[in-house]
Amino acid sequence: MKTIVTVKRKALASNDERAGQLRAMLAERGTLALNLISSPGSGKTTLLEATLRELGGELRCAVLEGDVATERDAERIRALGVPAHQILTGGACHLDARLVQGGLEEGRIPEVDILFIENVGNLICPTSYDLGEDLKVVLLSVTEGDDKPFKYPAIFARAEVAVISKADLLPHVPFDLAAVKEQIATLNPRATILLTSSLTGQGMGAWYDLLRARLATKREETA
């Protein structure tokens, strides 16, 4: 007997459920969580290093590092005296909520004000997975080329903040900044676009202010 079973369930519903558990736990702690997504080499870890140097004195921060292999990124963060846990995906191209739950298991990461989750370097696969974060941040370095938002629309449509990194290299590479801003605005008119250089500090003040403001908002919402 043939039956049509109507399901109407999200394909990643089980991930979304775990992400919901994470979101509730982080809200209870008053922790702001960020999911940093970019292709490899866009400067996610370098942005984090600069950010932790700036905010480390005033806020409690921690980092979950997602990579296919090596402890290198977590070691870079720990060298700054900031707690970090390395999640090794063993080949998988993205983090999912289950891996983040594992990374937050007792004792691995203390309760903090801001939790940075650095996703595996990839502009596609991490897009589909909610990690319980408050905001997705996409990085695009100026050396990657000015056609990327329209080429990888899904992440630019979803990320609330787009950081255009390596601004110090702008004079040396063909990169139409206005065109990139237009592409991002088309995909997500509400996105905040920041132009930064982690090396020179250019534009970093706006990034720090954004983090402080978002943390304050979260504190008010969850108080």
């Binding site: 043939k2 109507t6 399901v7 109407k8 369930r9 394909a11 990643l12 899904a154 449509a157 979803r158």
Partner: peptide
């Protein structure tokens, strides 16, 4: 355009 949903299943019982 952000759908990733299971809609229905045809099941032969």
């Amino acid at each position: 355009g952000d759908e990733l949903d299971i809609l229905e299943i045809v099941y032969e019982a």
